[in-house]
């Protein structure tokens, strides 16, 4: 029994500790990878919206699940794209400012 204690127990503790450390690192790494992909998503969505804005406005975009487009003033600095549109002719000039957020 003493032999077992001296040989297995410290080994088991170390294994458990290392496993926990590995698990924490895996969870942390996963969260970092998720964060990275969110940044990537933001970047590609903003590039898409930027092109759309230049191409005639982002008002018609409602098929992106994680993008909200509002005409309100920006509440935080968290917006993706500000897209001002000037339409109309003569004295009848309409100005709309669309702001896109990622949900």
């Amino acid at each position: 029994m003493v032999l077992v204690d001296s040989l297995v127990f410290p080994d088991l503790i170390v294994v458990i500790i290392l496993t926990i450390v590995a698990l924490i690192l895996i969870i942390y790494l996963t969260s970092l990878l998720v964060k990275l992909s969110i940044i990537n998503y933001r970047a590609s969505i903003s590039a898409f919206l930027f092109t759309k804005c230049l191409d005639g406005g982002i008002s018609g975009i409602n098929y992106l699940n994680h993008v909200t487009i509002t005409e309100d003033k920006p509440l935080s600095g968290n917006y993706l794209i500000i897209c001002p549109r000037i339409t109309g002719s003569g004295y009848d000039i309409n100005v709309t400012v669309y702001i896109a957020y990622v949900r």
Partner: peptide, 30 residues
């Protein structure tokens, strides 16, 4: 795992900075 976490952290900082810069330029242009 530690090496991977280090690389990913560096990558996040780098990509996040670049993304924000790109957004700033895009919005400035618009």
């Amino acid at each position: 795992l530690i090496i991977m976490v280090t690389i990913t952290t560096y990558l996040i900082n780098y990509v996040n900075y670049e993304t924000n810069e790109a957004l700033l330029y895009e919005n400035r242009y618009l």
